[in-house]
Design a protein around this nucleic acid. Structure first.
Length: 111
DNA sequence: CTAGTGACTGTTT
DNA sequence: AAAACAGCCACTA
């Protein structure tokens, strides 16, 4: 046999969110609510944020591509530094922020 | 078990 | 357009 695992193994909601975030293309952004919906857990937007806050040190999750439904970087407890890092990472991928610090979701939104 | 908290969102002011 | 409210649900104490 080649592979016969991971599919049947029970996945926590956190891992399901991470899997969805990994599918966001470079240079695009999506909202917490969309991640929750694509993970099969509509209405769990807050939990997506909670899951991303709990990311382990080592991961391959492009968390910076997740913004709120208004297209802006969500403020979080813990410091403003991360918010600026997130914006810098996105701009590095070609995402444009307008003068109000928001991304045009009709242009960069995914899907 | 209850209560407080939070990287959210949709509706109403 | 921005702010206030209410609904939402997993985690922690």
């Amino acid at each position: 046999m080649d592979i016969a695992r991971a599919q049947d193994a029970p996945m926590s909601s956190y891992e399901r969110f991470y899997e969805v975030v990994r599918t966001i293309p470079t240079g695009r952004v999506t909202s917490y609510g969309v991640v929750a919906r694509l993970a099969g857990l509509p209405g769990h937007a807050r939990q997506v944020g909670y899951a991303l806050a709990a990311l382990p040190e080592k991961h391959d999750v492009p968390w910076h591509r997740v913004v709120n439904v208004r297209g802006e970087v969500s403020t979080r407890s813990g410091g403003r530094a991360y918010e600026e890092i997130q914006r810098a990472l996105l701009e590095d991928e070609g995402v444009v922020f307008n003068e109000r610090g928001r991304v045009d979701l009709t242009s960069f939104g995914w899907p």
